[in-house]
């Protein structure tokens, strides 16, 4: 990835973070922490990596993305809106009665959503089915699925992991967003999922790792997944929950809480500062 592209993605990611905070603030509820930890990866996927077209959201040959950690919908909605799948005005109506943007992704009513998710552990199974469909239909698309690190406590994730390896789904790339926080606290305290990489390797997956907030590192990990050897890929990304907003970073309290007006102003000031630094670079 060249420096210019990287800078463009970094700028785009700040925009996405502002959208996330604005949407959750407007909704007065939602999940900012995990949305911010996944923001860079989603920006990378939709603005750089994936073959998707906002004018043809149901193209049978498109790449798919499944937000298995469906509660971080604000991040996906922000990316889809900025990418032109629907108006950014919709973000201000998030979670409101009669609005298109539901609390969790709804494929039936939201352009660009490839799978309805929200109940943890289920998205990855749907991604397995999509990848199997791709293989069966001789399609060349890749299926990406993002999971939370807390989410992989769900047994269904490991049922899916078994099936993906068994059916040699090397057109499937799972991302585990490892911010080590879930609602009740640290993942390692609530119910340890470690070692994550070894578990997936033992289930027959290729494993890559990256720094979730460094586009060079993200790109290097996704570049590795181009190697097709009959095994699905998992990228375990080390991330910071609440990344980009000083008082939300690495704080489980911001898993599912919306900022008040004062906190909103502070969050936007933090992001303005990052944006300014990027402009001046």
């Amino acid at each position: 990835m060249d420096a210019k592209t990287k800078l463009a993605l970094e700028k785009q990611a700040v925009k996405i973070r502002k959208d996330i905070i604005t949407a959750v603030h407007s909704a007065k509820s939602g999940h900012p922490g995990g949305s911010l930890s996944l923001a860079d990866t989603l920006t990378y996927l939709y603005f750089y990596k994936m073959n998707v077209d906002s004018k043809n959201p149901s193209d049978p040959d498109r790449d798919r993305f499944v937000l298995s950690k469906g509660h971080t919908a604000p991040a996906l909605y922000s990316v889809l809106a900025e990418k032109g799948f629907f108006s950014t005005d919709e973000l201000l109506k998030l979670r409101k009665t009669g609005a298109m943007l539901q609390g969790h992704p709804d494929m039936k009513h939201i352009p660009g959503i490839d799978m309805t998710t929200g109940s943890l552990g289920q998205g990855i199974s749907a991604a397995v089915g999509m990848a199997l469909g791709g293989k069966l239909g001789d399609k060349n698309f890749t299926v990406y699925a993002a999971l939370g690190d807390g989410e992989i406590q769900e047994g269904q994730v490991w049922e899916a992991a078994m099936a993906a390896a068994h059916y040699k789904l090397d057109n499937l790339v799972a991302i585990v967003d490892n911010n080590n926080l879930q609602i009740d606290g640290k993942v390692s305290d609530v119910m340890s999922v470690y070692p994550i990489t070894d578990k997936f390797a033992a289930f027959g997956w290729n494993v890559a790792t990256c720094d979730a907030h460094d586009f060079d590192s993200i790109d290097a990990a996704f570049e590795q997944t181009k190697e097709k050897n009959g095994k699905p890929w998992v990228i375990v990304q080390k991330s910071v929950k609440g990344k980009g907003v000083s008082f939300m970073e690495d704080n489980a309290a911001w898993h599912g809480t919306a900022p008040n007006d004062e906190q909103y102003a502070q969050a936007m000031a933090d992001l303005d500062k990052i944006e300014k630094e990027l402009e001046e670079r």
């Binding site: 199974s125 999509m130 199997l132 239909g137 269904q156 059916y167």
Partner: peptide, 28 residues
């Protein structure tokens, strides 16, 4: 045999995978 998939003793994943494959035009 090419259109039959055993998911093992793992019904939750089987149902989810069926949901996923249906989005690619298959009828599971």
């Amino acid at each position: 045999p090419d259109r039959f998939f055993d998911f093992g003793i793992a019904e939750a994943n089987m149902v989810g995978a069926a949901a996923g494959i249906s989005t690619t035009g298959k009828i599971p």
